[in-house]
Amino acid sequence: MTLLQKNHQRSVAILVLLGIGFLVLTRLISEISFVLARPIYQSLKFLDPDGSFLYISIHHIFQGILALLAIWLVSRIWRIPFADFGFNTRQWQNALRWVFQFCLFWFILQISIGLWLVFSGSALSNFPFPLNARNFGGYFAFQILLSGTGEEPLFRSLVMMPLLFYGRKIGLSNQRNAVIAAGIATLIFMFAHINFALNPLGVTYFNPLQQLTCLTFGIFYAFLFLRTKSVLGPILAHNLLNAVIITSGLILILSFG
Score class of each variant (00 low, 15 high):
M1F: 11
M1L: 12
L4I: 14
K6F: 10
K6P: 06
K6L: 12
N7P: 08
Q9F: 14
Q9E: 14
V12H: 10
A13L: 15
I14S: 11
G19P: 05
L25Y: 07
I32H: 01
I32L: 11
L36A: 07
A37T: 01
R38F: 13
Y41Q: 03
S43G: 13
S43W: 13
S43C: 09
D50H: 11
D50C: 04
G51T: 05
F53W: 14
I56P: 07
S57K: 05
I58D: 06
G64D: 04
L66Y: 02
L66W: 02
L68M: 10
A70R: 01
A70L: 05
I71R: 00
V74I: 12
I77V: 12
R79F: 10
R79V: 11
D84L: 11
N88M: 01
N88P: 00
T89S: 14
N94Y: 15
N94W: 14
L96T: 10
R97I: 15
R97M: 14
F102R: 06
F102P: 01
C103N: 10
L104A: 15
F107D: 05
S112H: 05
V118I: 09
F119M: 07
L124C: 03
L124Q: 03
S125T: 15
S125Y: 13
P128I: 02
A133H: 12
A133K: 12
A133E: 14
R134C: 06
N135Y: 05
F136K: 06
G137W: 02
Y139K: 13
F142G: 02
F142T: 04
Q143K: 10
Q143D: 07
L146V: 03
G148P: 00
T149Y: 01
G150V: 04
G150Y: 00
E152F: 00
E152W: 00
L154Q: 05
L154Y: 04
R156K: 06
S157I: 02
S157C: 06
L158G: 01
V159I: 10
M160C: 08
M161F: 09
M161L: 13
P162Y: 01
L163Y: 02
K169D: 09
L172Q: 08
N174W: 13
Q175K: 15
R176P: 10
N177C: 11
A181I: 07
A182P: 09
G183A: 09
G183P: 07
I184R: 06
L187P: 08
I188N: 01
F189S: 05
F189A: 06
M190G: 06
M190R: 06
I194D: 01
A197R: 13
N199E: 13
G202Q: 04
F206T: 08
Q211D: 09
Q211S: 12
L212K: 10
L212N: 09
L215K: 07
L215A: 12
Y221K: 07
Y221C: 12
V231K: 00
L232Q: 01
L236K: 03
A237K: 00
H238M: 00
H238T: 03
N239W: 03
L241T: 14
I246S: 07
G249K: 11
S255P: 04
F256R: 04
G257F: 05
